[in-house]
Structures are given as structure tokens and as C-alpha cells.
């Protein structure tokens, strides 16, 4: 049976090294570019007619735009307008990576902690920079929930700081783990189908069960792909809200 972890292997197609940095073109980088290209084609192509009454494609594009715009407006408020292009790009990139990753044989960009953590760390640092830039040292009151009795401050503040600092970890691991687990499960059951089919006879007939399971699991994984992109984007909005509005 094929190793279910093989699908996550990064293979260097064209080794490149610039100024001591390994910038090799790998299957991961190729799939990142595929994601960028396909999502750009989807979003720009849908608007090619700029129709007043949108067709199906244009409706999907407008729906994506309004979905993210509403998400930012509801979670960050009007102060979040400046970050809308970033949240939109982030959501579309992760959605594209999650969904294209489901194509059999594809590499899932978001199944790598390096990628998801890079996003989470960027957001974490961005929140700190925006928070201090907007509120100065008052940003530190984020760790003091209003109405906390003074006696508890010694306990609450370190907890708040810890919970704040673990954000990039939970933020990135949630996406990475969901993608990795789903793909491993698909691969394991795919392996069962092949092994049972190869065994022949009664066992081949039993192979129908993992096949049915895999079909259902593929549908579930498609749902997970969309939901996890949404979760990642909405958490980004929630964290941005802290920086922009200093709310608890």
C-alpha cells in the first residue's frame, strides 16, 4: 500500500539558490502558482463583461466579494475597510489551495504547517503593529478585560497574554491539521480500494465499501475545504478587530 504521507512530500523540480536562500521550484510552488492563476482567472474572467445584470459566473465573483466584504464589515466594522483586500486575497488563496488540493494527484499547499504558520504569523505580527500604531500603549489594555476585579488581574493578565500568543499556533494548526487529516484519510481508504481490488474474488466485492466511503468523504472534504478557508478568514477578522477597535 502506498504511503499516505507521500502526497505531502515536497519535490524539487528545479533547484534554485539565490544569495544562499533555497528558492527551488517545487511541486508546492507550482501548485501555489496554479492556485493564484486559477483564482485570478475566476475573479477577473467573471468580471470581463462588467454586466449590469450579472450572469452566473459574474454572480459567483460578486458573491465572493460581498461574502468577504460582509465578513470584514460585521467583524471589524468600518475601520476594517483598509484590510479588506488582504482578507479577500487570503480567503481566496486558502479557498483555492484547499479546493484544488482535492483534485486527485494534486499537492495541497495548505497542508503544510510552514505555509499556514506563515499566514498566521503574518496576521499575528500585523495585529500587533496595527494595534500599537492605532492605539499606542493603550493597546496593552487588550489584556485587561473590563470589569476584572483588581485582585484577579495578576491571574487574568498572564492568561490573556498566553491566549494572545498562542493565537498563531491555533490559527495555523487548525487549517494544517484539517487538510492533512482529510487527505490522509482519503489516501488510506483509497489504498484499501486498490488492495481489495487487487486481491480479487470476494475481497474485490468488499472493496465497494471503502469506495462508497471515499465518495462521501470527498464531499465532506470539499465542505471542510470551504469551511476551513472561511474559519481562517473570519479568525483573521476577529484578530484584526482587536487591533482596530481594541475590543474584547
Amino acid at each position: 500500500m502506498a504511503n499516505p504521507l507521500e502526497q505531502f512530500e515536497v519535490v524539487r523540480a528545479v533547484p534554485i539558490e539565490i544569495a544562499g536562500i533555497d528558492a527551488s521550484i517545487t511541486n508546492a510552488s507550482i501548485w501555489m502558482l496554479i492556485v493564484v492563476t486559477s483564482m485570478t482567472l475566476f475573479l477577473v474572467g467573471g468580471m470581463r463583461r462588467r454586466a449590469l445584470v450579472p450572469g452566473r459566473w459574474q454572480s459567483m465573483v460578486e458573491l465572493s466579494y460581498e461574502f468577504v466584504a460582509n465578513m470584514v464589515r460585521e467583524n471589524v466594522g468600518t475601520g476594517g475597510r483598509a484590510y479588506f483586500p488582504f482578507v479577500f486575497t487570503l480567503f481566496m488563496f486558502i479557498l483555492g489551495a484547499n479546493v484544488t488540493g482535492l483534485i486527485p494527484g494534486a499537492f495541497t499547499v495548505t497542508s503544510h504547517l510552514a505555509v499556514t504558520f506563515a499566514f498566521a504569523a503574518l496576521i499575528f505580527l500585523g495585529v500587533i503593529v496595527i494595534g500599537f500604531a492605532r492605539h499606542g500603549l493603550k493597546f496593552l489594555t487588550l489584556f485587561v478585560a473590563p470589569g476584572t476585579p483588581a485582585a484577579f488581574l495578576a491571574l487574568i493578565v498572564p492568561l490573556e497574554v498566553i491566549s494572545f500568543c498562542t493565537r498563531p499556533i491555533t490559527h495555523s494548526v487548525r487549517l494544517f491539521a484539517n487538510m492533512t487529516a482529510g487527505h490522509i484519510l482519503l489516501k488510506v481508504f483509497g489504498g484499501f480500494i486498490v488492495s481489495l481490488g487487487a486481491a480479487g474474488g470476494v475481497l474485490a466485492a468488499v472493496g465497494i465499501f471503502p469506495l462508497v466511503f471515499n465518495v462521501a468523504l470527498t464531499a465532506l472534504e470539499l465542505l471542510v475545504a470551504v469551511i476551513q478557508a472561511y474559519v481562517f478568514a473570519i479568525l483573521t477578522c476577529v484578530y484584526l478587530n482587536d487591533a482596530v477597535n481594541l475590543s474584547h
Binding site: R12, I21, T26, M32, L33, T40, T89, F93
Partner: peptide, 18 residues
Amino acid sequence: EPQLVWLVISFGLFYFLM
């Protein structure tokens, strides 16, 4: 390392395009 390099390139390009 190569993933981060290409993530910066592709996400930067995507952000610019968007």
C-alpha cells in the same frame, strides 16, 4: 525555505492582482 520563498512570491503576486 523554498515554500516560504514561493509563498511570498505567489501570495504577493495574488495580492497585487487582487
